[in-house]
Design a protein around this nucleic acid. Structure first.
Length: 859
RNA sequence: GGGCGCGUAGCUCAGUGGGAGAGCGCUCGCUUCACACGCGAGAGGUCGCUGGUUCGAAACCAACCGCGCCCACCA
């Protein structure tokens, strides 16, 4: 664009219109290749972040948008600081979620995955992914996320799958992955095992607690046990009592008869049994209760499975119940026990029950042949990485959660009875087992049908995306990564596992800092979710407010706490973008176009803005480095509104519009250009679009702002004297404006007055202009006097001032001053205060008192 | 059962030992030559409750009330 058309363009665009401009800028960034760094140099000198890979089925939700904004701020700032910055991009195959999507599609077509068969189904999922997957990519682009889209990964890519297989095989050979018949959380909806982390303990479930009598085998009586799951009694293999329970001491070693089944159950003693609960006797069902399973293993009890993986009672439940669904079996068992007269009581019982987060169904604990990963060897190094400070988790409370969880970690069930995922690299032939990267030679081998938990492959994300296990340039350039940013809910599911795998395989921590951001709740405080109807689509917000507004708003909202979504913050971001756009228009349309950006302070306000800018740069950058994004965003807002626009631009307008002083205009142009450029650089990581667009109109600006240097830190520009002097002028302006408003002076009218105050040598003209006073004329008499810092302004008589209002105002001010004086006097009369408070505080109080006294005398 | 956190203006939130803040909303004024998605000026708060520590508490401590989250194998 030529300079002239650029100016005409600026002149015409009195509003920042993100909808028209942002997509164009996003396109420019993508075409520039800026987001795709070549894999050169070392991880030490480079900067990288691996994005938490969204599900391939996913759409951008509020969490993605917030986390995207956070990571993009970090990446853009690092890039502007001259680091080779790579934001690793890709999607997750998301086993269950994706499989369900395609299954639903098949249902609509009147077929099912079973009818299709495994190979055809998996093929179908791949095609589904080609067609519908990766919508979220375009959504991230719209947000302005500077991910490396040119180097996209998928957790099912052949190379990635190779890494997954290698990790499995290695851990198997090292004895850390093993197959076992063990109690697992069975999800009847999914018909698959799930891990402990996918189980949600739901509180407040109302059940009936049945007391059931088991007769003693020797006919000497009965023992009464309590249960909320009477149908599981069909799989009982013992009755247990506490070893210290005198009531039952005589029964230990005897046998009870299991009603309905007739099996003889040993009566055993185990410390797990709480004598104070129920009758103090516990039925033991090793096949369907995690506690009982442990007790059973301790005592070598038989393990009976009465409930099958299909959710139906098995043959072991006896002829009467076999084949019934669990719920029906419960009714039938209760009915049968009632007929037998074995029920001794029933009461309402409210307790906590496990549900599957995946399907929402009640988890059925059962014994199943599954693959597990042992954690005893993997956990401690991962704990040490954090406790030693090599990995820093922010905020620190999350580090405690991390360590606590790892300290109590149990084996991880990694096999899933699904079709979509990384199929376990194990083959069987009769009694032989083969584990390897490729299928074994020879006939008759059958591969294990199960796939791995999706989190198994996600755990390798920071290095498998970079080509591990090969020693690639990308791996050398970008591993370990610098920051991992995520929500709290996957600290265990993902973050801890990445640390374990990173330490075990590439042998280094996968990232140095973990930032755990807040969860944004719906405005009413509930969880934001589609099913509750409380979800808010970030893309709709981008449509209304622009991506800059959404980014700013989400960052400003975020904190260490969970926060309620507030659309006002998004609007605040939009307002900031618009403000910056218009401030830039003022500067760019009025300056000397041949000026070069450099600080050329000529007045106190120039020194002031350079000083305030310097403080803002240090503050915002420091906040970002400390992962304090909300304060960084608000500090930027305060600088742009409260300092640059409200004061500096208003103060320099006379010089900016004065064409008679060529040198003066050139100087202020240079300084303004400097201030604008630095402000754009400072703001760019947070609100990249508007800053990039303004930059394209800055004379002499070459290329993209996203490629420029970060705002300069130069402590020499801090000028406390200028800040004090202009601070005084600002305070005076505010006092005088308030006074005018209260005494009803017409806004346009210039009032004659005398400025009788110290410290306004350089600022009196500005104060007069901004308050519409004329301090130049003489004149007699005083109609009113207004206190300003350092003295008073004496307003000369005129018919324009409501003297009664002025007097009223004076009296109000006087009363307030007297109250404050009394307060200060009381404080200083307090011997405890004078003796014990820090000297500076006492001195400050004395100065304040003196100041107040001077002012009240002036009235 | 254990642990963590929150309760400040109508709303959403800052503020962690020395005169209560922001954005939005509300009131009043302003078509001031960047912006009416604007500018200027205001109103509005027993800082959940009680007690304690301190010269001084919104902030620190204790108990309580209310809300939220995480972890946990008592049927």
């Amino acid at each position: 664009m030529t300079d002239r058309s650029s100016l005409a363009d600026l002149q015409a665009r009195t509003r920042w219109e993100p909808g028209e401009t942002e997509p164009r800028i996003a396109e420019q960034w993508l075409e520039s290749g800026l987001f795709h760094p070549e894999p050169e140099g070392s991880a030490e000198e480079n900067y990288s972040i691996a994005v938490p890979p969204p599900n391939v089925t996913g759409n951008l939700h509020m969490g993605h948008a917030l986390n995207g904004a956070i990571q993009d701020v970090l990446i853009r700032l690092a890039r502007m600081r001259g680091r080779r910055a790579k934001w690793i991009f890709g999607t997750d195959h998301a086993g269950i979620a994706t499989q369900r999507q395609v299954e639903k599609q098949l249902e609509r077509e009147g077929t099912s995955r079973e009818q299709l068969g495994r190979d055809a189904f998996v093929e179908r999922v791949w095609r589904w992914r080609e067609r519908y997957g990766g919508q979220i990519t375009g959504q991230f682009k719209r947000l302005g996320a500077s991910l490396d889209y040119e180097d996209e990964r998928f957790t099912m890519d052949p190379a990635y799958a190779r890494a997954v297989m290698k990790v499995f095989v290695d851990l198997y050979e090292q004895g850390l992955i093993y197959r076992d018949n063990y109690m697992v959380n069975w999800d009847p909806g999914l018909r698959s095992a799930i891990s402990d982390l996918e189980v949600e303990q739901r509180e407040g479930v109302v059940d009936t607690l049945y007391s059931i009598a088991y007769p003693l085998a020797d006919g000497s009586g009965e023992v009464v046990v309590a249960t909320v799951r009477p149908e599981t009694m069909l799989a009982d293999t013992a009755v247990a009592v506490n070893p210290d329970d005198d009531r039952y001491a005589a029964l230990v070693g005897k046998q009870a008869i299991l009603p309905l089944i007739g099996r003889r159950l040993p009566i055993i003693a185990d410390p797990h049994v709480d004598p104070s609960f129920g009758t103090g006797a516990l039925k033991i069902t090793p096949g369907h209760d995690p506690n009982d399973f442990e007790i059973g293993r301790r005592h070598g009890l038989e393990e009976v499975s009465a409930i099958g993986e299909d959710g139906l009672m098995t043959a072991a439940a006896g002829e009467r119940f076999a084949g019934l669904p669990v719920a029906e079996a419960q009714r039938a068992v209760v009915q049968a026990l009632e007929t037998e007269g074995s029920i001794r009581g029933r009461e309402e019982y409210i307790h906590t029950v496990p549900f599957s987060q995946r399907s929402g169904q009640r988890v059925e604990p059962l014994i199943s042949l599954q693959w597990f990963m042992a954690m005893d060897e993997l956990g401690p190094p991962a704990i040490n990485a954090v406790t030693s400070g090599r990995i820093r988790i922010h905020p620190p409370s999350q580090a405690r959660r991390y360590v606590d969880w790892l300290e109590g970690i149990r084996p991880w069930c990694i096999s899933r009875q699904l079709w979509w995922g990384h199929q376990i690299p194990v083959w069987y032939r009769e009694s032989e087992t083969y584990v390897g990267l490729d299928a074994p030679d020879g006939e008759g081998w059958e591969r294990d049908p199960d796939v791995l938990d999706t989190w198994f492959s996600s755990a390798l994300w920071p290095f498998a995306t970079l080509g591990w296990p090969d020693d690639t340039p990308a791996l050398r350039a970008f591993y370990p990564t610098d920051v991992l940013s995520t929500a709290r809910d996957i600290l265990f599911l993902w973050v801890a596992r990445m640390v374990m795998m990173g330490l075990r395989f590439p042998g280094e921590i996968p990232f140095a800092d973990v930032y755990v951001h807040s969860v944004i709740q719906a405005p009413d405080g509930r969880r934001m979710s589609k099913s509750l109807g409380t979800g808010i689509d970030p893309l709709d917000l981008i449509e209304s407010y622009g991506a800059d507004g959404v980014r700013f708003g989400l960052l400003a909202m975020s904190s260490a706490q969970d926060v309620r979504f507030s659309e006002e913050k998004i609007a605040q971001g939009q307002a900031l973008a618009n403000k910056l756009w218009n401030a830039s228009r003022l500067v760019l349309l009025r300056i000397d176009r041949s000026a070069r950006a450099e600080p050329r302070p000529r007045t106190v306000e120039d020194r002031w803005i350079l000083s305030r800018l310097q403080r803002a740069v240090q503050d915002v950058a420091g906040r970002i480095d400390a992962f304090d994004f909300s304060h960084a965003a608000l500090a930027l807002y305060d600088f742009v509104y409260g300092e640059l626009c409200d004061w500096y631009l208003e103060l320099v307008k006379p010089r900016l519009y004065d064409d008679s002083d060529e040198q003066g205009h050139a100087d202020v142009s240079a300084t303004l250009l400097h201030v604008l450029s630095e402000t754009l650089a400072l703001a760019h990581p947070l609100i990249p679009f508007v800053t990039e667009e303004v930059w394209s109109h800055v004379p002499g600006a070459d290329g993209l702002l996203a490629r420029c240097s970060a705002a300069t830190i130069d402590p020499a520009l801090v000028d406390a004297a200028a800040e004090a002097e202009l601070g005084r002028a600002i305070a005076a302006v505010q006092v005088l404006r308030a006074w005018r408003d209260e005494v009803g002076a017409r806004p346009g009218l210039v009032l004659a007055a005398r400025l009788v105050a110290d410290g306004y040598e350089e600022t009196a003209d500005s104060v007069a202009r901004l308050t519409r006073f004329d301090f130049t004329g003489g004149g007699d008499g005083v109609a009113a006097s207004v206190s300003v810092p350092g003295g008073t302004v004496e307003v000369l008589p005129s018919g324009e001032v409501d003297l009664d209002a002025a007097a009223r105002r004076r009296e109000e001010r006087r009363a307030k001053l007297l109250a404050e004086i009394e307060r200060a006097e009381r404080k200083l009369a307090n011997s405890g205060f004078v003796a014990k408070a820090p000297a500076a505080v006492v001195e400050g109080e004395r100065e304040k008192l003196a100041r107040l006294r001077v002012e009240v005398e002036g009235l």
